[in-house]
Write a protein that binds this DNA or RNA. Structure first.
Lengths: 235, 235
DNA sequence: GTCGCACAGATTGCATCCTATAACTAAATC
DNA sequence: GATTTAGTTATAGGATGCAATCTGTGCGAC
């Protein structure tokens, strides 16, 4: 049980995070810590998540850890096999394509549904997020702003189920390709440009244009992923 | 702590089910029992699910019960608020419409994806299910066959994510409207007719026709739901 | 030398006990 | 009489210890 020489990421990256208990249950705390660690790439795909280890690291008992893992498993970010433990899920290229294909179908729908419900307040929020994204560099914060931008639109569609599905797909996307989208040079600017177009289309209440922009926006990520995975062709 | 006069359904309906432990973990057992009880309508929407009660009834401890409830919560069939416990979810009419709207989008997609992958073996299975559905009356078994029929198609699409989303939407549908679809007279025959059309279209590898049939098939349920909820207009 | 088997270490899963939280009830104050 | 506040009870959440299960390793047989 010495640390493996081939560096798979370890949960020890989480050391130091403590549970204040303030109005949050322990399993919620564990879940949020693991979630953000996984989505940020801190915990890479394939990392084993040993309950006892996580428990002592986060200073809770194993019970809430297991509950958190169960929830993450149904969210699809970890794999949890009976008696064998949890590992951070790693998606295949096919799955990435599948996820983006579904997103390209659902996101335009959610967007069109949102348009009639757009208030000035929501538009202001979107403009604010867009503005801020032009200011901060590509970082965890930027990724978060990006997520907020899109989800704000979809949540005003007042279709909670649809929004939840999209959110989960987006999470899976970020988990898998978020890490190396950072390395694609012009991507951030392209994304900001697309957001601008989406925003403009929303101002005009033009569903077709907005939908088209979103689909192109998604295509960007897929293309970046493809060029990257072709480059890292090592199977 | 007397029983309420207004008869909300009770978990006591589950009494007698025992956990053999055979190659199944306790929480999986609890989950499957609760799932089928909820989907079958045995546990109606709004029923409180008290952990201790379920635990003693199913002869397990509260820990696996909580884990099962957590999973069911992320599946969307129960609502689980911190420190307040779980209740069987009840969907509003709007949510039902939303769910069917999403299904009408995704199911044709899954179907088209399935067509190139249809083997004779799958077709045989579908024919068998279809045949059997003409034989058994509208019952829990029939509903299950129906579910199998559709999911068999979607699972051959080799899009696990898409299939999982559809399955969860279907579960929510069944949970909510399954109970009173039974009471709509011609529905079973109409459904069987639609299945015949879908099957025929699949034989011809005709995606358009199959998709059209599926959408009409879904529309059937929505229409039945609407006429029923208009009839039971008591808000 | 390879395959199979058994044992040991590691890890998950569960039961029991205890604590924390929230709903409910009743009393006290305005 | 209404409203707030304190106390009570029911119930969820979590910690600990133990049992069940899996995995890897070493020994023996072929």
């Amino acid at each position: 049980m010495t640390s493996e020489p081939v560096a798979t990421s370890s949960v020890s990256a989480l050391a130091g995070t403590t549970f204040s208990g303030a109005r949050q249950t322990a399993h919620e705390f564990v879940r949020s810590v693991l979630r953000s660690a996984i989505l940020s790439g801190e915990l890479a795909g394939g990392t084993r998540l040993v309950q006892a280890e996580l428990a002592s690291l986060l200073e809770v008992s194993t019970t809430p850890v297991r509950e958190a893992l169960r929830e993450l498993a149904s969210e699809g970010v970890v794999r949890f096999d009976p008696h064998r433990g949890a590992v951070v899920k790693e998606l295949s290229g096919e799955e990435v394509h599948e996820i983006y294909a579904i997103r390209e179908i659902l996101e335009p729908v959610a967007l069109r549904r949102a348009i009639p419900k757009l208030t000035e307040e929501v538009m202001d929020r979107l403009r604010g997020l867009h503005q801020k994204m032009t200011e901060v560099p590509h970082s965890a914060e930027w990724v978060d702003l990006n997520r907020s931008f899109h989800m704000t639109i979809y949540e005003t569609a007042a279709s909670p189920r649809l929004a939840a599905i999209i959110r989960s797909l987006e999470d899976s996307s970020v988990m898998y390709i978020g890490a190396f989208l950072k390395e694609v040079p012009g991507l951030r600017d392209d994304a900001i440009h697309d957001h601008g177009e989406i925003l403009e289309a929303l101002e005009r209440r033009d569903g077709d244009a907005a939908a088209e922009a979103v689909v192109r926006h998604l295509g960007l990520a897929v293309k970046a992923f493809e060029s990257r995975s072709a480059q890292t062709d090592e199977s």
